[in-house]
Amino acid sequence: MLTIHPQFRLDNKAFSKPGSLLDDVKTNYPDDYDFLKALLYARSIDVQTSGSTGQPKTITHTVQALQKSAEATGKYFELKPGTKALHCLSSAFIAGKMMWVRALHLGWHLTRVLPEANPLQNISEHFDFAAMVPLQAQSSYEQLDQIKTLIIGGAPLSKVWEEKLAKLNTDIYLTYGMTETITHIAVRNLKKSNAVFETLPSVKISQDKRGCLTIDVPYISTQKFVTNDVVDLISNTSFKWLGRYDHVINTGGIKLYPELIEQQLQPYISCPFIISSIADETLGDKMVLVINSKAFDIDLNQLSKQAGLSAYHQPKQVIFMTDFPLTINGKIKRNDVKSNINKYSL
């Protein structure tokens, strides 16, 4: 169970006992009540994964591990008791749950708002720290100077938005992590042009034979977490992310990383899309651009030229789908898309 830090405040109110906090939350933030009750009275909590890389599953984390994760974030960003923090994420997932844990355990002054697209729209207050998904950061762009340090995760951020956000006075970081590692274990400062992720304190990393990232988080598990994320390993505390091993397209013996190509195409395609592949007798896999829309005219050569794609990185075909399969938190199910387009291309 978690003990409330004496300096913790919720909406400028102090709480010395769990019961009074839960009464307030039940009235004002009922969607957070069950999680907080478990956090304050149990030794572990169950967390649902998003399902973006497979079937959603339930993972159990000890409250002690959640506290250690909170301490690592606090130490990296130098967030002391009394830190003014904005919580605007859904507590249905680990990122939203951890905002509560950090505030309660580290003694932050927390302002809770509903997880809407623009959480700052009716707020003039300034904050030391906040966490958002890309849509929220983009929608709040004009007001982000109200936040000193902002972390962004949960979905990809386009290169255009990376460059735009990097120009703000706010210190903005992209996060790397997953439910299994209790949110982020590494962050990337958008103000640095090297695209390097740095790990939080106590976290060490390495690579397996596939070139995929393995993560050692001693406060969570004695065993390493083995990922399917292909990386350029710089040191045991820093790396560049290249893409997912299970998404790599091998076309004519050349390995292509869809996520990197998507980042280049993002500014020029207004509809949701992904880079995928279909079976090809000559190439093995033929790279295709799959767009979530009704069919419209598109010039692949011109598009690729605009995006600065080389001939090897240019999609060979466009496929339109009217309904992308999505996970429970809105991420595209890439494997399902690939299965569907290969089914109909035969």
Results as ranks from 00 to 15, higher is better:
residue 57 K to E: 15
residue 58 T to G: 09
residue 59 I to D: 02
residue 59 I to V: 14
residue 59 I to Y: 04
residue 62 T to F: 10
residue 62 T to R: 00
residue 62 T to N: 02
residue 62 T to I: 08
residue 63 V to W: 02
residue 63 V to Y: 10
residue 66 L to I: 08
residue 66 L to H: 03
residue 67 Q to G: 05
residue 68 K to W: 04
residue 69 S to K: 06
residue 69 S to E: 07
residue 70 A to M: 05
residue 70 A to T: 03
residue 71 E to S: 11
residue 71 E to P: 01
residue 74 G to L: 14
residue 75 K to A: 05
residue 76 Y to D: 01
residue 76 Y to H: 11
residue 77 F to V: 00
residue 79 L to Q: 07
residue 80 K to R: 06
residue 81 P to C: 10
residue 82 G to N: 02
residue 82 G to L: 02
residue 83 T to N: 00
residue 83 T to G: 09
residue 84 K to M: 00
residue 87 H to F: 08
residue 89 L to E: 07
residue 91 S to W: 05
residue 91 S to H: 06
residue 92 A to K: 15
residue 94 I to Q: 03
residue 95 A to D: 02
residue 95 A to W: 10
residue 96 G to D: 09
residue 97 K to E: 10
residue 100 W to R: 03
residue 101 V to N: 08
residue 103 A to M: 12
residue 105 H to Y: 12
residue 105 H to F: 15
residue 108 W to K: 00
residue 109 H to E: 13
residue 109 H to P: 01
residue 112 R to M: 15
residue 117 A to I: 08
residue 118 N to W: 07
residue 121 Q to Y: 13
residue 123 I to P: 09
residue 123 I to W: 04
residue 123 I to L: 10
residue 124 S to T: 15
residue 128 D to V: 00
residue 130 A to Y: 01
residue 130 A to P: 13
residue 131 A to C: 14
residue 132 M to V: 13
residue 133 V to M: 12
residue 136 Q to C: 14
residue 137 A to T: 14
residue 137 A to H: 08
residue 140 S to G: 09
residue 141 Y to R: 08
residue 142 E to Y: 01
residue 143 Q to C: 04
residue 144 L to F: 09
residue 145 D to N: 15
residue 146 Q to E: 00
residue 146 Q to W: 03
residue 147 I to K: 04
residue 148 K to E: 03
residue 149 T to P: 10
residue 149 T to G: 06
residue 150 L to E: 07
residue 152 I to P: 04
residue 152 I to Q: 14
residue 153 G to V: 06
residue 154 G to S: 15
residue 154 G to R: 04
residue 154 G to M: 07
residue 155 A to F: 08
residue 156 P to K: 13
residue 157 L to N: 03
residue 158 S to H: 01
residue 158 S to N: 02
residue 159 K to I: 06
residue 159 K to M: 05
residue 159 K to E: 09
residue 159 K to T: 00
residue 160 V to G: 00
residue 161 W to R: 05
residue 165 L to Q: 04
residue 167 K to P: 07
residue 167 K to E: 13
residue 169 N to R: 08
residue 172 I to Q: 06
residue 173 Y to F: 13
residue 174 L to H: 01
residue 179 T to I: 05
residue 179 T to G: 10
